[in-house]
Every structure is written in C-alpha cells, then in structure tokens.
Design a protein around this nucleic acid. Structure first.
Lengths: 334, 334
DNA sequence: CTGAAAGCGCTTACAG
DNA sequence: CTGAAAGCGCTTACAG
C-alpha cells in the first residue's frame, strides 16, 4: 500500500498534456498562454487538488513572500499588535508568521539570527527586545526591525511608552478640585510602566499637589487592591492614577473593601482601555491605546524598508483619553 | 557593487577543501567524519557565518520540523494556549509557528488548506473553527487537528468545549432555591459556545425549571449588557448563566443600569476565570480553565499523531468551578 | 504561444 | 572516512 504524495506541477503538466513551463506560467500569471490552454491547466490543477510547494518556489525565486513577527511570553495586547501587523503584511502581499521566543535576550538574539539566515523570511519584525547584533543586517540578509516598547536603547517605536496623557489626567483632576494623588504603578523594568511613574512624579511636583506616593509594581489586580489597602484611613478624597486597567480593577475592589465609594471618596484612572472597563460600575476612565495601529505602523516600516521606500510618517494619536464615570465631574481640558 | 548572497554549504565545502557531502554529514551529524575534518568544517562554517537554508533542506528531506498553530482575532486566552502548545512542540523537537486567520469560516478553511498543501508544515493545530474540509487529511498531507471544532463529529479535542460544569452551576443554584434561569451565550459556531448553550437547555429541561431563553451570541460585554436590558421587568429573581466572564461583566453593567442588585435580584456565573472577575464587586463565580494545559494537551495529540503513537489520555481536570460572591448563598454540591 | 533544460541549496544512496 | 551525482518541486532565461 503506497502512500501517494501531493500532486506536483509535473503531475498537472502530464495530465493536462502540456509542459511544466506552461503550468508554471499559468499559475504565476507570467508568460503568455492562450486562454484555452490556460483554462484547461487551471481545471486540471483544480481537479487533482494541486497546490504549489512553497518551499520549492521559495528556493527558486529567492522570494518567500513571508515575514516573521517575534513575540515573547503572553502579553494580551501583543495579540492586537500582531493582528495589526499581519493585516498590513497581507495587504502588501506577504504572509506574516509569528514566532514566540523565550529565554534570555541572548537566546532570542540567536534565534533571530537563525531566522535571518534561514532564508525563509524576507523581513523580521520583533516585538521583544533583542541585541543589536540581530538588527545589523548583513548583505543579502533580510531586514530586521524592532518594534518593542520595552527597551529604549533599541530602535524602539516609542509610541507605546508615551505617558504624556497622564499629565492631562492630573491637570483635569486638579482643575476639578483634587489636591491629593497616588500612583499605582506597573513594573519599572517596562518602559511604559517607568514612563508613567516618572511622568506622575514630575507632574505632582510641578503642580504642587500632595502625593501619597508610588505604590504597586506589578501589572496585577491584586497589586492594585493591596495599594488601596495600604492607604491611610484619612486618605480620601484621593485621586488614584493606576498604571493600567487591571490595576484599576484591583483599586476598585480595594476601595469597596474599605467602604470607600468611587468617585466620591476615590477617583480612579486606568490605562489600555480593556473591554471590561466600560462595563464596571462606575465605568473606568482610561487611555485608549490603539495597539492595532501600533502593529500596523511597525509593519508599514518593515514593508517600506523591503521596498526601498521612504518610511511612513510616525503614526499620530495612538493614545486617547476615554473619560468615564470613575473620575466623577472631572472634564477634559478645552 | 554586487550584493553578496548568504554563504551556502557549497561555499563552506570549497573554503574547507572538502566536498559538499562532507559538510552535510558534519552538520547533520550523519555519516562518519573524522574528528579533524569535522572540526575544520565547523570552524569554516562558523567563520563565514554559514546557516543552512531551511527551504532547501525541507524540500530535500520532506521534513520541515515545523508545526503551525492557527488562531483568530477574537479569542482571549489564546496566548496562554499557544504558549502551552509551543512548549510541547519544542520539547518534541519541532518549531511551532502561529498564523492568525481572519474572515469567514470559509476563508479560514481555505487558508488552512493552503497551509496543508504548502508542504511547509508537518502538522497543523487550529484554535479557531474551520470547516471539516480542512480536517479530512488527504494522503501525504500533514495532519490537521482542531482544538475547537466547528463540528463535533470532526477530530475535536473537546476538553475546552466540555460544558458539564454548567450542570453543576444550575443544580447548585436550584438547590439554593432558584427557579428561573437565563443563558447569555457565546457564538454558536464555537464548539464551547454551542456546548454551553446545549447543556443549559438540556439541564433546565431536565430539572424542570423556568428558562427565559438563550440570549447573547457574541463573546462581548455589550452582548451581555443588552441581554439584561432585554429581560422583562419582572424577571428577577433570575439566575443568569453567562457564556464567559466578559459576557458576565456586561450582565453586571446591565443589572446596574436596571437597578437590579447582584446577587439579590440576579445571580450570575461566568466562565474562564479572567483576572478581573476576582476583583469585581461582587466577585464573579466562574470556571477556571487551564488554558496552558489545554494548549499542551492539544499539541501532545498532534505530536502523537505525527509519530504514529497512541494519543495521550485525556487531560484531567482542565476545568474547576470557582465559587465567589455573584452566586450568593449557592454552595458547591457535596 | 509553448517546451527543453538549467539551477535554487540542500541530503543521501552509492561507490570508492 | 570521503566524494561525485542525482534529485526534492519549482521558475525562468532561451530557443523555437
């Protein structure tokens, strides 16, 4: 009992009674083939379920039509960035494949180098930090672009670490009468977490309002809850600037446990515009981050590099404040 | 100015003064090569930065060492499954690549078919629904396994679609005195969404309690909110079985908008144990799903199929009810 | 408009 | 222990 292999273009040619060349011309749309022959070949190909072997095509054309995206361990928002990037890749006629590389930065760098040399990809976009060794493109190797918000020294796109909207939060809350603040921060080895904490500190300093300090330190709801539980009894009224929405949910819970109401005793802001934030009671004021646009922009940069075109201008307005109930009467500045 | 191409095994052979065969034997560890030659070849390969062209190797060996994982846009928790799957794939000596396929189920099916015929993958694991056409493996094509099947008659893994804990929810709530139920369902082309809806219907029927029907139809908070807004004014007290946690959050919001309290007017259950659910007020009773284990198990099945081994036993206890405040006095059955 | 032939970079019997 | 040669499935000058 022989296992039959998938049909090849040679099979199509034989059955259609034409040469392999003709089959290739029909399928790639090159050369000039008579409509009759063309139709016949397509029909035969269809009937035997022929599909081109991409490895063979790739080897011959030195064009794989494939781009690689590199991610690390689960960050939910990466999924959205990846989808944006994949969309742009497809529009440009490429297939994007995602690899998840763990381990040290050296491990990841080595794996990216393997990828560049493997001849399978025409370009590589990494969303996790790698050493610059992986980014310095040798001749004949595909371009490697890093779109990571996590390491400022890399060729980072940076948009995602921009914390300037945090100043808008604080200014608007001060305008609404708030004089006491606290920050529930994310981890400080994340560029975004650090930028928000630094912006918070600079801002309360500049505006001369009271700060109960920088609490938290993880992207978890429990850290948000603990931060509120650690606040002094006479803390309210206080404006809590949370590093992201999941921290904010923890703040909500901590407030409920202490009998503090939002937005009367505490006002709360989040970051990321997670879906649940629009449906809590009260709903959560936050920053909508267009992760998909960030992913699209990163891939646009790679495609432009591939085509030798000018890189597209920096994407504008990836972030936007969404005012909701958790900040009470605070209004957007006019 | 000529662009130099990446070095090939032929370049290594020429520089090392040996044949291409010898280079191949050294690199693949096959054949028998003297230590001296071996050392020399490795050194030359290293010095010129040689890395094998995987497309060429793959074409020759008909083994790519690559497995594909298919995901879509809309699934939370995917990252966790993917990481589990990737881990098992790596342990088994494979590289796992993730593709995100959007569009209709027909679009996705077509793209999976292209992948099977493309000759690049030895196996495919899909976490999004595809038509059975993609799952029926032709001779010589790689196995395609669906971790969430469109049709249960296919090779569905089933664990994630197991809705039997929903019966426990309903039984426990009936035991606590509830007599009126409603289901806020996920999309019915997901095996998990459909299984939960079917189990719900069978269960209310069997227990002879009142059902206000199956509402919802998407994995979104807004669908949960709308479902509650569509309930009749005299609905409470009612037990709402939500298809997942994000639907449940929408139910929470809808209840707040109607002035219904949880758990007094409505009791609510979710599914997935999303992080935020432990921190809402009241906290959300839900089902903890071990997505990483599910991903591992799915990949184990694929690897077993690849090796012609017996499939590993069904993973045990991927799901576990987490009783919290949103179900009031309802208690786990003893 | 169509076909014969070469070659992309590998691996692997086979021969020595 | 090592090499010459064939071939994986394609595409593409080149010739007709």
């Amino acid at each position: 009992m022989s296992v039959s292999l998938p049909p090849t273009s040679r099979d199509v040619a034989r059955i259609a009674g034409v040469s392999q060349t003709t089959v290739s011309y029909v399928l790639t749309g090159k050369g000039s083939i008579s409509p009759a022959t063309r139709e016949h070949v397509l029909q035969v190909a269809e009937s035997i379920g022929y599909r081109p072997n991409l490895a063979a095509r790739s080897m011959r054309t030195r064009r794989s039509g494939r781009l690689a995206a590199i991610t690390g361990v689960a960050i939910d928002n990466q999924m959205r960035m990846l989808n944006g990037a994949a969309h742009v890749a497809n529009e440009a006629g490429y297939v994007m494949e995602t690899h998840s590389f763990d381990g040290t930065v050296e491990d990841r760098t080595e794996r990216v180098l393997e990828l560049t040399a493997g001849g399978q990809y025409e370009g590589i976009l990494t969303f996790v930090p790698v050493l610059s060794a992986a980014l310095s493109n040798g001749p004949g190797t595909p371009p490697v672009l890093a779109a990571t918000a996590f390491d400022d020294k890399m060729h980072s796109l940076g948009e995602l670490a921009d914390a300037s909207l945090l100043e808008v939060f604080i200014s608007a809350l001060v305008a609404a009468g708030h004089r006491r603040f606290a920050h529930v921060a994310g981890p400080q080895d994340y560029a975004s977490g650090r930028a928000r904490a630094e912006t918070y500190l600079a801002c309360v300093e500049r505006l001369g309002v009271e700060s109960l300090g920088v609490l938290g330190g993880e992207w978890t709801a429990e850290a948000g809850r603990q931060a509120v539980l650690a606040l002094p009894d006479d803390a309210p009224p206080v404006a809590v600037i949370a590093g992201n929405d999941i921290l904010a949910v923890g703040v909500f819970r901590g407030a409920a446990e202490r009998g503090w109401s939002i937005p009367d005793d505490l006002v709360v802001t989040g970051w990321d515009n997670a879906e649940f934030g629009a449906y809590t009671t009260p709903s959560l004021t936050t920053v909508d981050v267009d992760f998909e646009a960030a992913g699209r922009h990163a891939m646009h940069l790679l495609v432009a590099a591939l085509r030798g075109e000018e890189p597209p201008p920096r994407a504008s307005a990836l972030q936007r404040i969404v005012w909701r109930e958790s900040t009470g009467r605070a209004e957007p500045p006019r």
